[in-house]
Design a protein around this nucleic acid. Structure first.
Length: 565
RNA sequence: CGGGGUGUGGCGCAGCCCGGUAGCGCGCUUCGUUCGGGACGAAGAGGCCGUAGGUUCAAAUCCUAUCACCCCGACCA
């Protein structure tokens, strides 16, 4: 590809609207251009990489028996009514104004529609069907470039099995295929097990990539691979000590002391000697949640414990419920349900609010003084805490969900009546799995993990080109002749080559463009080197440059391509 | 949806407070010089200042409405 003819509109300046590295670099390298919020055009360079990603996905899904479909994005609304998902998606689903169609946000219903009445016998199972197509979701807030868009390219596969045991097999095939796909893409990822909850599915796992631009917070153990969403993550933590001797309860005047910090300051005590109170309303009933010191209650865990949504009590309600305002509430004399974080289990000699403004109580023994207390895991895991599985340190960080494999079960087949006949001629709903990959996210995540201050650094299978010939001063006849010769021969040898043959572009400009685009190997052809019959080969990743005699350039390139991938 | 911010040439921005008919850098066109890490000179092209109303002799600038985009949060997979 000759750059003088290629449409690769690189940008020197950082676009005002882009914030995260991958977004900035994709725009600057001329890979994408935004059309509207969350809607991007892929320009030739970006699309080239996208095609390579989808090719890897195709190979690996085909290898486990997948068959590719091409499905409509425009769907009759009624098919989505059958499974109740028009309501479930709500405003996230795009509706067509002048006909009763919706734009498909995913394709469970459509695949199930095709299975229905056609996959009639257990003999035809299992099937793995997939597609790589654009999905539409009316995201309230698109962000981070291509990572959360209103339309996005997704590979989604669906498996159809005759039993849950067979589903396990299909699921495991995808699990392995996904690892191969992301490994081949050169992405560092980890797998988070997620309990799939109310969807009726039994198991789901998310393939995640660490990134500040992520929308999920996870706890991860580098050593043993334990990974969990912060909403369910656990760690080994020390409970507050139970002292030999339990003191008697006593009231302390604590004027204007509201926060735990203020309380510790005022009484010259450690935060572990305190129990913080938060009042939540659940099913219109107040619940007092106690947590050690200044830790935060994890509301998702709380909701799981209580089995219903919660909301923090409003300031004006608190006095009515407890007799005091926030900052002076505590378990002693609290008339409603009391639950506490495990860390506080059987703690004694604790300080907490007195349910009387400007007073706290000391000498609290939860075992003695709060007999109805219940203990649960209510706190969020924090970085540096101990892994429950291997004892190493956990890290807590943001992550992007790249892929999701999910045992659906019969939710869709039952709702839509997609049944098959077993050996005995008996009707059963197809047992389904669904497996998604955000294709553009793969690209964005790759860049998030492979860049420096100059630009993108391509390696491995995703690289848009093997080689970048950078010809300095192509008006010089020797340079022109040798560059063209190199370009023709390297292309003939089967390398994909980007050739910066632009006249009237300064050397520095070309170097910077080449670093920005990030092809792994640059071959710099200039008259200076040609006088010694040599060109310079630069490895983009290390910045290392070597003079190579033209006589041995092809063998050298062969070695370097192998090395640099 | 709540909070904050921004809309001025292809890109990045100044001008707005204090109204007087639009400017800078990059990019683009032509010519010349240059030519190994984003060159230099000269001459050009390109904007009804997001949109719609209003105030005023006069609006990029003041007022109102509206739209778009970005960030934080909520929501979502």
């Amino acid at each position: 590809m000759k750059q003088s003819k290629a449409f690769i509109p690189t940008l020197k300046e950082v676009p005002a609207d882009a914030v995260i590295p991958s977004h900035i670099l994709m725009i600057r390298a001329g890979m994408v251009k935004m059309l509207s919020a969350g809607i991007y055009s892929f320009l030739p360079l970006g699309y080239k990489v996208i095609k390579q990603i989808t090719e890897i996905i195709r190979e690996e899904i085909d290898a486990i028996g997948g068959q590719e479909f091409h499905l409509p994005a425009l769907n009759p609304r009624e098919i989505w009514e059958e499974t109740g998902r028009v309501e479930a998606f709500g405003d996230t689903m795009f509706h067509i104004k002048n006909r009763d169609y919706v734009l498909a946000p995913t394709h469970e219903e459509i695949m199930t529609f095709h299975a229905k009445g056609i996959l009639k016998s257990y003999k035809e199972l299992p099937q793995i069907w997939y597609q790589i197509q654009t999905k539409f979701r009316n995201e309230a807030r698109p962000r981070s470039g291509v990572i959360r868009g209103r339309q996005f390219l997704m590979k989604d596969a669906y498996s159809f099995d005759k039993s849950f045991e067979d589903l396990d097999v299909s699921y495991e095939k995808h699990n392995k295929a996904y690892r191969k796909i992301f490994d081949r893409c050169g992405i560092k990822y980890f797998v988070v097990g997620a309990s799939s909850g109310a969807m009726g599915g039994s198991k789901s796992e998310e393939f995640m990539v660490r990134s500040d631009a992520g929308e999920d917070t996870v706890a991860h153990c580098e050593k043993c691979g334990y990974a969990a969403n912060i909403e369910v993550a656990q760690s080994v933590i020390e409970s507050v000590p139970r002292h030999e001797e339990s003191k008697e309860i006593y009231e302390i005047s604590t004027p204007n002391v509201k926060s735990i910090d203020e309380l510790c300051d005022f009484l010259k005590i450690d935060e572990r000697e305190t129990a913080k109170s938060r009042v939540y309303i659940c099913n219109d009933e107040p619940v007092l949640a106690l947590i050690s010191g200044n830790e935060e209650i994890n509301e998702t865990k709380l909701e799981a414990v209580l089995g219903a949504p919660v909301r923090p009590g409003r300031p004006e309600e608190l006095k009515e419920i407890s007799g005091a305002d926030a900052g002076s509430i505590g378990p002693i004399g609290f008339k409603h349900r009391i639950i506490a974080d495990l860390r506080l289990k059987d703690g004694n000699n604790l300080y907490s609010g007195a349910n009387k403004n400007d007073f706290h109580i000391g000498g609290i023994d939860l075992k003695r003084d709060v007999p109805n207390i219940e203990y649960f895991d209510l706190r969020s895991v924090e970085s540096g805490e101990t892994c429950i599985r291997c004892g190493e340190k956990l890290e807590v960080f943001k992550a992007i969900e790249l892929g999701h494999i999910f045992k659906l079960g019969t939710r869709y087949s039952e709702a839509m009546g997609a049944n098959f006949l077993d050996v005995n001629g008996k009707d059963h709903p197809l047992v389904m799995g669904s497996y998604g990959i955000g294709v553009e996210r793969v690209l964005a995540c790759y860049i998030e993990q492979h860049y420096d201050d100059k630009g993108i650094i391509w390696e491995g299978e995703l690289k848009p080109f093997d080689l970048h010939i950078v010809s300095l001063n192509i008006k010089n006849e020797d340079v022109r002749r040798e560059s063209n010769k190199l370009y023709d021969e390297l292309t003939a040898k089967g390398y994909s080559v980007l050739f910066d043959d632009r006249a009237n572009v300064q050397a520095g400009f070309k170097f910077n463009d080449a670093d920005l685009i990030g092809v792994p190997l640059q071959i710099v052809v200039g008259d200076r080197g040609l006088k010694e019959n040599s060109v310079e080969v630069k490895i983009r990743k290390s910045g290392e440059r070597t003079k190579v005699n033209l006589d041995e350039i092809y063998s050298k390139i062969e070695d370097l391509v192998k090395e640099a991938g």
